[in-house]
Each structure stands twice: as C-alpha cells, then as structure tokens.
Write a protein that binds this DNA or RNA. Structure first.
Length: 679
RNA sequence: UGACUGAUGGUGUAACUGGCAACACGUCUGAUUUUGGUUCAGAAGAGUCUAGGUUCGAGCCCUAGUCGGUCAACCA
C-alpha cells in the first residue's frame, strides 16, 4: 500500500529546507500579527490556520501580536474580539504581544539610526513629500532636510517626542535611496506625530512608528523565525531586511519574511475597509451579521470551528491570486454538521393537513432519531395528532411523475410516523389552498414492524403537530453580493452588486416542541431543510433561528435548471473557430507522440491527422512550418496535414514549397518519404 | 514606459534532484436510503498561457513573448 504522504505547501517546503540546511528546529517560531482595527474574517482564518498549523506541526510557539502602531484606528474592542475569535477557532498562542510593548526599544533604535546618519527629521508637507517621492517609473528627489546635521535631528526628534509639534509638521525618515526602483526604499517614514489616546500606552507617546519600522523589529525582538504575510507586502521585504540589517545582533536569529496569496471567497469581499463600510452603511446589522464573512459572523450563522479549519486546510496556500468558490466552504460545513447536528422537524412555510380518520383530541408520542450518523445518539419524543403542518412545497394537487411528494391519491410517509394519502383539498373563495384532507394508515406506524409499516412509498416528508408546535422566527440568508467577484470591476464598485434579498425573515415558523430546549452554540438539522442554530437575539419564548446552510438539494436544482440556464452567464462560444483550434491542437498533440509510434499505430495516428486536417485552413497551419527542426513528429504531422490541404486544392505557396523542400532533406526517413510523396 | 510577482480541468491545490499530470470541491450516471440528505460505485472534464530551445524524455531547465496581480497612505 502506498504511504499517504501529505504534500507540503510552499511555506512548509521553505521550513523543511531551512531545517535541512541546519536551522535548529527548537528555534522555529511563528506569529499572527493582526492590527486591532476591525474584526477577523475568513481570509484571516487562512493566515491563522497557516501559522498556528505550522506551530502545531513543528511543536513551535506561535505568538499573537497586535500590530497597534496607529492609535487613530485601533480599539480595545477589536483586541478582545480578535482574541475571542482565535480562541474559538481552537488555537492557543504562546505569548500575547503588542508592538506597543516595543515602543521604547524602537525609539532607542531610531535614535541610534540618527546618530549613524541614517535617519533625519523632515518638516515638509505631505504634498511636498509625495511629490518628491517620484513615481514607480521615475526616481524621486531628495528632501532639502536630508542632510540636516545629526545634532539638529536629535534635538528635533526629541522635541517631536515631547509633544512640542503639531501633527503633520515633523517626521522622522530613514535615509536610504530616493532613486530606488522600490518605492518603499525612497526614504520611508519611521515616525509620525499622532496626538491620540492609545488603547494601551495611553498618552505616554505622541510619536508612533510606521508599520515597516515596527514589524520586522518586533519579529526580531520576539525571535520569530518565519514571518508570514500576504503578497501585497512583497515589495516591503527589501525594507524589512534593510531595517533588520541596522539593528541585528549576528548571534541572534534573523527573521525571514515570506509572502503568500490572500484567500478570496466568491460572492463576498474580504477587506476590513470594505467590511467596515458595509457595517457603517447599515447594509448589514454589524460585524457579526450572519451574512458577513467575519469569524464572528460565521459563528453567529452557525459555522463550526472545525469547518473553518477544514476549509483552510483543503483550500491550501499558494502564491497566486485566487477566488475560491463558497461551495467548498459549504461542503466543509455540511460535512461537519452532518456528523454532529441533532435532527429535528420544523415547518417554515406551513399548510395544514387534517387526518380525517384520526381520532379527534388524541395525541401520540412518537420517537425521532437524533442522528442517523451516530447509532448511539438516541431518540427524542415528538407528539403526533390529527392536525399537522407540512411544508407547502411538499404538496401539489396535480404533479408529474418526477414529484415524489404528496398529491391527491398519492401516499407519502410522515417521518417517523404514519403513511398518509391526500384525499381532497379545502380552498377559500379566491381559490387559495387552506387545508389538505388526508387519510392515514393506522397500521403503518414507523418502527411498529407491521407489514404496512414496511411498505415502500416514494417519499418521506417532515411535519409538526399543530396543537403542540412552538413558533419561532427563522432567518434565511443568501449571498451578500450578486457578483462572484464584486470588488474586481474597474467601472463598478462592490456596493453596486449588493444583493437586496440577502435576508429573508420568516416571522412564524412551526417547530417541534423539543426545540424549546434548543441551546446556543448548538446546530440542529431541520430535516430536509438544512442546518440551523439559535441566534443570540432569542429570548425565552421568542426563539430566533439562523439558517446556517441548506442541505444539498438535487431536487431543487433539477427544478431550477431550466430557468437557471437562462440566467446563467453562458460563455459565448463560437463553435466554428473552436473546432479549427482543436483540430490544430490535435494535430500538434498527435505529432508530439509520432516518433514513438510504429506500424499500425503510426498509420492510425497519421490517419487521425488526415481526418483532423479536413477541418483546417491553410492559414491555421502555416505558422507551424517554423516548428523546430528537432521536433520531427510535429513536422511530420504538419506535412501530412499540408498534403491533405494541397489535395483539396489549396495553392502551393512559397512558404509551403520551402517547407516541403526542407523536409525532403531532413534526417528523418519518415519525414523524407512523406515529403517526396507531397512533392 | 519601471520594479517585483504569478500563470496546471469550472474552482482550489499537488506533482521529491526532468520520467504515465494527482487530490478535493463542483458537475453527470447508477445503487442504497423512513431526509430528493448521508453513504457507496462509476463517468466526464486539463496535454500544464504562447512560440522557440536543451534532452531519449519538459508542467518542471534556458530564451523571447502574452496575459493577470502588486507598488507612488504621515494605513497595516
């Protein structure tokens, strides 16, 4: 049996290489460095799972570091939410760190840089500085303050720190290279003045380090071995290394920055700024709205930590841009929930069924399996009576043979109860369906063991007893955006693609009484409908359920198929050119293998080429005359195809003649023979 | 017109020093099923962006090109 060797992602390859090159395993250290300016989302989950996964795999510590260098945007609320989310995902950080813990050290190193003539205080406006920065295609120019004497820089920086200057008036900049092709190296800003209350350091600082200055040095201080970030920081790496070079003690570990592609999900946006806009413009009810791709939103929706971790695992890590289909996330969710969710019955869109031959006033207690996937999960009680609710969609007065559910004269089983047959319907004056009158088969009770109970019927539907049902609000969610990739359009904003119908509220759904004891943070499968979880808006006696995700529904898909096809963005395929293209491709492909063939197989292959050549134009073929002389097979294929065209009356162009001539003097016998035939 | 970076089925990822392009989702069949769910069995779908080159052999190496992404916040 083949060993199930897990393939490594490229980050793991890097770690393995470092280990193989002698890097001591016990020095491996990772970190997850969020800025506490918003809530974590499913994209962060990829990074969290990557870093903490690496930690688990190599038995290495993983720090949680809050990158809190901008007090204007950061809040304690976010720190708390981030910690809650990571813990909920099931990860434990080795140390809780803050960039702000290093403010003093960072400041001292900055002073050292000034002493070394590698940093200077600038006092131009942001406009002037931006202008001098140049553009990606043209170099920048030096600031007039670039060569300010060290003593003056020291004094000015000290006064910046003391709070003598207004924000925006002075800056500390690193002196690197205003002509660097890398914009980040053009004298980047080290410190700016911000008079804002910091959630941890309070008012003790009024100068704050920029990301680049703080990040690498923080990694170094924590002795992080592999500092993993997303691709957009690739260009920062040169600066990351430059800063490290200034302060590093060669005896200590030098952190390494590596970049991976951020995870994008279809039909949503994945940036804090855009998610914040959705919150601020009340498109959603908050960061934890169940439609949000935030961890807290997913949690409230009913997602499980296991499903999110599984998703991150399955989706993997790479360096190319991606848009992962939500269906993959949903698959991971259903897979988990199918194993764990208690099965219950609930009717969202009710129609009343009256069992004409069931005694009025009688109640029976039946037993419903808690989870067919787990034999030891037991059962719970569910009351049955003469009047029931079933799903409106489960009945049709007239239906074709594809409809397995209740129709007049057709039997269905009520889940865990009896087989019933629809006899007649009651309608109001306007023709609206009010009740379905049915008969039930008293001998068919589930589990009774009678012949009648073993009878096969086409379908089993769920139900709830009218007299015993409890009512609840149910919220169903659809994708937040109508476009697969809403924030990638040049002419349109993602706000233009908001789905106006992403929330559907059912004020009164009917649930079996067992759900009166429903617990928060627990998932239930409303049989045949999907997975649901209690929303925190619930009060006792006023339950609110969120639909986490529907069950896979091949019936709905089948039904929707005709309309769907019209709505679906059908790829415009021009059949004719594609045929030609595939013919050409086919010829090239057969050609590649030609030299390995002989006898009948060779003959077959040549015939295939002749057949393909029928659908080919000379213009298509001509570029292939230039095929490298070494590629004998392709040349033969082209020659054979050409002979077909010539036979059809295509004129011999100079290019064709030249090609044939070159073939006649080729090393290959086969090619020479074919060429003579054509000539 | 710069620098950096990437390109493998519809989607997301694999393929150790070049050796039969693999896995998962999705799609489609069939079987099982007291959930049109689950489970099981199977199928279709890429000749690896293009063109050249090196090689017995290229997704992988070399050359040129094409297309996409990132970079000019006192954000991170």
């Amino acid at each position: 049996m083949k060993e199930a060797t897990e393939s490594l992602n490229f980050i793991e390859h890097i770690v393995e290489e470092d280990l193989a090159a002698g890097f001591p395993k016990e020095k491996l250290c990772f970190r997850f460095p969020p800025e506490p300016n918003g809530y974590l989302h499913i994209g962060h989950a990829a990074s969290i799972c990557l870093n903490f996964g690496l930690g688990e795999k190599y038995g290495a510590p993983v720090n949680l570091r809050f990158d809190d260098t901008n007090p204007a945007k950061e809040e304690q609320e976010y720190v708390d939410a981030i910690k809650r989310d990571i813990a909920w995902l099931g990860f434990k950080w080795a140390n809780e760190c803050y960039s702000s813990d290093y403010f003093q050290q960072l400041h001292d190193w900055a002073v050292q840089l000034i002493h070394q003539g590698k940093a200077y205080v600038d006092q131009q406006s942001s406009e002037q500085i931006a202008e001098q920065k140049g553009t990606p295609t043209s170099p920048g120019t030096n600031s007039p303050y670039r060569n300010r004497p060290v003593a003056e820089n020291l004094d000015l920086f000290e006064r910046m720190k003391k709070g003598e200057f207004a924000p925006g008036t002075y800056l500390l900049r690193a002196k690197i290279d205003m002509a660097s092709p890398n914009m980040h190296m053009r004298d980047p800003i080290l410190y700016r003045i911000i008079h804002a209350h910091h959630h941890r350091t309070g008012d003790s600082w009024c100068i704050y380090p920029m990301y680049d200055w703080a990040h690498g040095e923080s990694d170094y201080l924590e002795q992080v071995s592999h500092s993993l970030c997303t691709l957009e920081f690739k260009a920062h790496r040169e600066l990351y290394d430059w800063y490290l070079d200034q302060i590093i003690d060669p005896k200590k570990l030098r952190p390494k920055q590596r970049e991976f592609a951020r995870r994008n999900l279809s039909f949503t946006v994945m940036s804090k700024r855009k998610l914040l806009e959705l919150v601020q413009k009340n498109v959603v009810s908050g960061w934890d709205d169940p439609r949000m791709p935030t961890i807290s939103g997913l949690r409230r929706r009913g997602y499980t930590p296991a499903s999110i971790r599984k998703f991150s695992d399955v989706a993997g890590i790479s360096r190319r841009d991606n848009v992962t289909d939500v269906s993959l996330l949903e698959f991971c969710l259903r897979e988990d929930l199918n194993q764990s969710a208690t099965r219950v019955m609930a009717v969202l869109n009710p129609i009343k069924v009256v069992l004409q031959n069931y005694p009025e006033g009688q109640t029976e207690i039946l037993h419903l399996e808690n989870n067919p996937e787990k034999t030891d999960a037991g059962t719970h009680e569910v009351p049955f009576s003469r009047e029931l609710y079933i799903e409106r969609e489960d009945f049709k007065e007239e239906a074709d043979s594809n409809f397995f559910r209740l129709t007049i004269g057709q039997e269905v089983r009520l889940k865990s109860a009896y087989i019933i047959k629809a006899e007649s319907v009651i309608k109001d004056a306007a023709g609206n369906l009010l009740e379905i009158h049915c008969s039930y088969d008293p001998d068919s009770r589930s589990g009774s063991g009678t012949d009648a109970s073993q009878r096969k019927v086409k379908s089993t539907i769920h139900w709830v007893s009218v007299a015993h049902a409890i009512s609840a609000e149910v919220r169903e969610y659809d994708r937040l955006f109508l476009d697969e990739s809403p924030d990638t359009h040049e002419s349109k904003s993602y706000m233009d693609f908001i789905n106006p119908n992403s929330l559907k509220v059912i004020k009164t759904a009917f649930l079996e009484p067992h759900l009166g004891q429903a617990r928060p943070n627990e998932s239930y499968q409303f049989q045949r409908l999907g997975y649901f979880a209690l929303d925190p808006d619930s009060k006792s006696g006023q339950l609110v359920f969120n639909k986490t995700v529907g069950l896979k529904d091949t019936w709905a898909k089948q039904n929707a198929a005709p309309t769907n096809k019209q709505a679906a963005p059908v790829k415009p395929v021009a059949p004719a050119p594609q045929e030609v293209k595939s013919a050409l491709n086919e010829i090239q492909y057969i050609g590649k293998k030609l030299t390995n063939l002989s006898g009948d197989k060779l003959e077959d292959a040549l015939n295939d080429i002749r057949k393909q050549a029928e659908g080919l134009s000379y213009e298509e073929l001509e570029p292939l005359f230039a095929t490298a002389s070494k590629k004998v097979g392709t040349r033969i294929a082209v020659l054979v195809a050409l002979s077909v065209l010539l036979a059809k009356g295509t004129p011999k162009t100079p290019a064709a003649l030249e090609f044939i001539a070159s073939c006649q003097s080729d090393e290959s016998n086969t090619l020479r023979e074919e060429a003579s035939k054509v000539a």
